[in-house]
Design a protein around this nucleic acid. Structure first.
Lengths: 199, 199
DNA sequence: GAGTAAACCGAACGGTCGGTCGGTTCCAGA
DNA sequence: TCTGGAACCGACCGACCGTTCGGTTTACTC
């Protein structure tokens, strides 16, 4: 609002608009499989011009995964600030909200979920992600301790499976005229808590 | 049995034993993030020695993913040859068996699921994998058409979610004294069909 | 112990990688 | 019209990539 003049027609890049292009290419080719030349071609500028906006390839990765991590952490903070509404409801909300965030920030979460840990920045991202997984697993464990979940499935195992299903959405979901984010979120939630069998 | 003499103490590599090492490194660092130097170090031989056993890096990838694809296709063939046992039972069996295969061939399936499509060999693997996904989705669709599944979740969506959960097992499962393959397989099956809620 | 083939190695190849550098072009404000 | 900085570019760098090649070592047979 303040730094943007009236006639600034976006033909030029900001670090964030460049990030958007870069993350899309990273997700298509994989981070290690993407060269700066690939990024330059996708952005329509030369390799060296990229370095005018960001320090290098790794900064693009770092910005990308941090955007996903911040969004996920933010929603967890909101959820923990909410008044108590039963342990089971809380898990349901967590699952539903996780799918929503994942779809809202689809490219960035996709990038995050594929990080391999080859550099310090990647290991840092994995560390932050592990914390998020632990917070989510905590919800499931508390619901299990309260007796709200079936007792024949280990809560740790259940947690991995449920959020494994949630995360798998990045492998196929694409925004468009098909399913909305809430369609997917409610399908996941219903499937996870009540199963696929007709009753 | 025939080509193996009595005193052949395995200090040397075969293409398959080298593949085992290579796939482990691929899964740790990512295929594109792995150099031939990395593979050589992990195998305890030099870079050039690898070329005595295989044609190059891409052959290792191809052999790895094909091992996974053959195992998955094989189990689907077996399943379709089985006598009819109800559409719902068939889906349950498919889910259970998919987890089993995935655990039995964990490193190879892991490699397969991470293929990005940068080369012709990778795109071929993605194509074969898509066929498998379609066969599995067919089971779910037939069960839905037979009225065995709840009607408020689109069978296509359900199929993606269920096998997304199945595939997510490669992200965390490690063989050892914890859960067995059948522990995980039955947890997945129960969760998918009857849900997590206590009843 | 000579002969042989498989297994392995060191050195080097052309090519591509991420990144740098010295500019030029563009454009808003004075 | 001049000026300063943002945006961008072409040429190039050292390092590392996957691969090749000529040779040496090893293990086994006769």
């Amino acid at each position: 609002m303040s730094t943007e003049t009236a006639s600034s027609r976006r033909t030029t890049y900001t670090p964030d608009s460049l990030l958007e292009v870069a993350v899309a290419v990273f997700n298509e080719r994989g981070y290690d499989g993407t060269s700066m030349e690939d990024l330059a071609r996708a952005a329509g500028i030369t390799k060296s011009s990229i370095y005018h906006h960001v320090k290098g390839k790794e900064e693009l990765l770092e910005r990308g995964v941090n955007r996903a991590l911040d969004a996920l952490n933010g929603s967890l903070d909101e959820m923990e600030a909410l008044p108590d509404a039963g342990e089971l409801d809380r898990v349901e909300q967590a699952v539903f909200r996780a799918v929503q965030i994942l779809v809202e920030e689809l490219p960035y979460v996709t990038l995050l979920l594929r990080v391999r840990g080859n550099t310090e920045a990647e290991r840092a991202a994995q560390g932050r992600r592990r914390e998020i997984d632990l917070r989510l697993a905590g919800f499931v464990e508390r619901a299990a301790a309260a007796g709200a979940l079936r007792s024949d499935i280990d809560p740790h195992l259940a947690s991995r499976l449920v959020f494994g299903m949630v995360n798998s959405v990045v492998e196929w979901y694409r925004p468009g005229p098909g399913w909305s984010a809430d369609d997917v979120a409610s399908a996941v939630t219903h499937l996870v808590f009540d199963g696929l069998r007709r009753r």
